[in-house]
């Protein structure tokens, strides 16, 4: 140790750089008080219902319908967004045209736009007298105030996830593998089916999972366009709020636990996907 007393190797810390205990301590304190403890409340609250009570709380027709709607439509939206997401990513990565940069930036709009703004805009747009709604009404298609409104809002909100997960992978793919496939005699279709799509597979799945997770929990952009009729077009987050307003804390927490569990499963599945894909690179 030097004469000026520099704490290069402080006796108690094993780490070379300073600030470990301070940063980790603060981080853990922040996380615990803001995240872990409140989450604990969420998990514990339904316990006062007992296992049977919990089960009853979440298996009423209204609750089940809301969960079906939230998760079901989220899945549909994720699939639709993945399909278009691949096309959009392809166009952005492979083609050159004026205004491409602008188009690229616009993709992030659902990310940056407050959900309430998206909500009232979509609702007004797809209402029977809205720009799009009025066109569709002539063909007997109603979007606003029906479950399809939920779907459209979810498609809006999840698009950035499906595009942004696929885009970098596509860019990294490069042209050489396609050229190799061509020199080996593959047609364009064969190249796309056997080489390009399989390589994009994990990224597409990841994007789909993220889109699903986001859409299932979404609230603000959906409640204006949805109609919110119990057991028909009522999403699970709305039901949670309704129960809270009725002081049914335990019931609200029960639904919250189900949604949280679904989030966890998604997170795990995503992490599993990432490591499986990483092994194959």
């Amino acid at each position: 140790m030097s004469a000026t007393g520099l704490k290069l190797f402080p006796l108690r810390s094993r780490h070379m750089l300073p600030g470990f205990r301070l940063s980790l301590g603060f981080t853990l304190f922040y996380l615990t008080s803001l995240v872990l403890i409140p989450l604990l409340a969420l998990v514990i609250r339904p316990a006062e219902l007992g296992f049977g009570g919990f089960w009853t709380a979440i298996s009423t027709p209204r609750v089940l319908a809301s969960l079906r709607l939230s998760f079901g439509m989220a899945l549909a939206a994720a699939v639709i967004d993945s399909f278009f997401g691949v096309i959009i990513a392809w166009v952005l990565v492979r083609y050159r045209f004026p205004g491409k940069g602008l188009l690229d930036a616009v993709i992030d709009l659902p990310f940056a736009l407050p959900t309430a703004v998206a909500g009232i805009a979509l609702s007004t747009l797809y209402a029977p007298n809205g720009w799009i709604g009025s066109l569709l009404i002539e063909h007997g298609i109603r979007i606003a105030y029906t479950p399809y409104g939920v779907l459209v809002a979810m498609i809006f909100i999840s698009l950035p996830f499906t595009v942004r997960t696929v885009q970098p992978v596509m860019a990294e793919l490069g042209l050489e593998v396609e050229e190799a496939a061509a020199t080996l005699g593959a047609t364009r279709l064969q190249t796309i089916a056997r080489v390009i799509l399989p390589m994009l597979g994990p990224a597409v799945l990841t994007g789909m999972a993220m889109a699903f997770a986001r859409a299932a929990g979404e609230y603000g952009s959906i409640i204006f366009i949805a109609g919110n009729i119990p057991a028909v077009s009522e999403i699970a987050p709305l039901l949670i709020i309704t129960k809270l307003e009725q002081y049914d804390y335990a019931g609200a927490a029960a639904i919250g636990v189900v949604m949280l569990a679904a989030s966890f499963v998604m997170l795990l599945a995503l992490n599993g996907l990432q490591s499986w894909a990483a092994k194959r690179r």
Partner: peptide, 10 residues
Amino acid sequence: FQQYALFKHM
């Protein structure tokens, strides 16, 4: 190819 261009998923 110089960078092999092998199909990584196969």
